[in-house]
Amino acid sequence: MSAEQHNAPRKVTLNILRYNPQDENDIPRLQACDIEEADGMTLFIALNEIREHQDPTLQFDFVCRAGICGSCAMMVNGSPRLACRTLVKELPQVSTLTPLPFFELIGDLSVNTGKWMRGMSERLETWLHGVEENVDLRKIEARMTPEEADAVYEMDRCVECGCCVAACGTAQMRPDFVGAVGMGKIARFRLDPRDTRNDDDYFEVIGDDTGVFGCMSLLACHDVCPKSLPLKTQIAFLRRKMALIG
C-alpha cells in the first residue's frame, strides 16, 4: 500500500433527514451526502461543509461550537448527541442524522428547544425563590460553603440541549412530562441554600405523573447527557424525597 493510499481520507455518507414543516407538500426523506473526513472533523464541521459546498438549503443550529450552548443537539444514528462534540471518525461509514424528536421542528435538523425549555422553566419556576427584591449592595452576601457551591454548580452545568428529553421514552409517549432537564433544575434549586422553597413546594411542581413519579427510570437521559450530569442519582434522590411528602 502506498503512503498516498494509506493517508487517503475516509469517505463518509451522512443520511440527513430533510423536511420543511412549513411546506404542506413536502415529504420527510433522508438525503445522502458524501463527505471526505478530515483530521479532527466534528459533525458540526461536516454539516457546515455540506451546507457550503453541496446544499445551501440544509437547516441546522449551532452557536458556540464547543459544547456550551447546547444548540446543535440532533439524533445521530438514533441517539441524541451534540454535533459539535461528535467526531466524524467515531461514526460508522454510513450514519443517519435526524432532528431531536419531541421538540417543535423548524426544518431539517433544526428544532425549537428554547420554546419548550421556557415553558418548562415557567411551569416548574426554575429560578431562585425568596431573594430580596431590593438588594443592599453594601451588605456582605450570605455565605455558601464550597461544598454547597460545588453541588449547585454540578447541576448548573446543564446547557438545556434537550438530549435527555429526546432520549426519554416517557417523554415520547407523554408530551407533558418535564423530563430529566426539569427534574435536574429542581434538584439544583433544592441544593441552593438561598432558595427558600421547601420539599412541599417542590412537590407542587414535580410531585405527580408529569414529574418525578412519571419517570420510568429508563435512564437514557443519564446515558446520553453530553455534560455527564448525575441524572440517575438526582432523580432517584428527588423521588425518595417526594415520596416522603406523599
Binding site: G207, R239, A243
Partner: peptide, 9 residues
Amino acid sequence: KRRLPARLD
C-alpha cells in the same frame, strides 16, 4: 396538589 401519585408510585 394531591398526594396520591406519591402513594401510587
